[in-house]
Design a protein around this nucleic acid. Structure first.
Length: 288
DNA sequence: AAACACATCAACCGCCCGTGC
DNA sequence: AGCACGGGCGGTTGATGTGTT
């Protein structure tokens, strides 16, 4: 359709974000919030698409994000939710405080999916592979949407803040989901709690996902008393300010981004500044 | 020690949905 | 009621790091 692109792509920078760009973006959002993403890059002095800014913020710069690999609990929760919701990553992410849809999607594609396949479980239908009718061609198999999850769209999470993952939730009866303990190698003692435990309720981003995986404000930063989206500039939790500071960076960063010893490739699980996409975030910004 | 292959993550693209005019 | 715009979502690709040969 003849829609205009989200931004005029002339002169728009693409590719990995630099620390400088991050700082500009964060600085701007701190001061002004984001009225509309389209103008954010202009006002912030960035040669980026507004969409790109939103993505960067949502997936990386948001102060309430957890970093590192998903815990067993989180992984289990993802599998469970995926069985119900299908590839509604934003919905799934809404149940995992501090996680983004992108992150979960990646984790699914790289870890969980393989794990399920190895176990003989179809990652799409969550059925045993041998029983899946069209299991012949893996590629095709995954191209068609799984029948089960689709109608569960309006399947709202419990409003009491707790996650009810057990079979008391409607919809499971026809979903021969694999058991959580079959997936994860380390069966937890108390499988009831949703992953990121210390985060109380998930102020799930309304039914439509809202501003991408809204998470409990109580996560990571105790000071983040307000939800991130639409928050007043002055109400940003302090970790955000780290972007402009040098000294306190290390200590607070540990708190903010508990590193879980990245399991290999990419930059995952590393200190975001050490493995900084822009080629290393030298806090002594003399290199810029 | 070097090269190759594999794994992982960040970012981009296009489409859809909701809202405002 | 219809149109346009902005935001959000899901899928896909590219870049980078790690492990193996």
């Amino acid at each position: 359709m003849g829609r205009q692109p989200c931004c005029d792509k002339v002169g728009v920078k693409k590719g990995p974000w630099t620390a400088e760009e991050d700082q500009k973006l964060v600085g701007f959002l701190l001061t002004h919030g984001h009225c509309c993403w389209r103008v954010v890059p202009k006002l912030a002095g960035l040669l980026r698409c507004g969409k790109s800014c939103r993505l960067r913020w949502t997936n990386y710069l948001r102060p309430d994000l957890k970093r590192g690999l998903l815990s067993d609990d989180e992984e289990r929760l993802v599998i469970d939710l995926h069985a119900r919701l299908g590839n509604r990553w934003s919905k799934i992410a809404a149940q995992l405080p501090g996680r983004t849809d992108n992150e979960i999607k990646n984790h699914w594609n790289t870890h969980i999916r393989k794990k399920l396949v190895r176990m003989g479980i179809d990652p799409v239908t969550h059925l045993p592979l041998q029983e899946a009718p069209a299991a012949a061609a893996p590629g095709e198999q995954e191209s068609h949407l799984p029948p089960p999850p689709a109608p569960q769209q309006e399947h709202q999470p419990p409003s009491d803040g707790g996650l009810v993952l057990q079979e008391d939730d409607a919809g499971e009866e026809d979903l021969p989901m694999i058991q959580a303990h079959e997936i994860t190698t380390v069966p937890p003692a108390a499988p009831t709690a949703p992953a990121a435990s210390n985060c109380g309720s998930v102020s799930s981003a309304s039914a439509s996902g809202g501003s991408a995986s809204v998470v409990s404000p109580s996560c990571s930063s105790s000071a983040s008393a307000s939800a991130v989206s639409g928050v007043e500039a002055t109400e940003w939790p302090e970790p955000l300010y780290l972007f402009g500071t040098d000294g306190i960076m290390d200590a607070a960063w540990d708190d903010l981004f508990p590193v879980t010893g990245g399991g290999g490739g990419g930059m995952g699980g590393v200190d975001p500044f050490d493995g900084y996409p822009g080629g290393g975030f030298d806090q002594d910004d003399d290199s810029m």
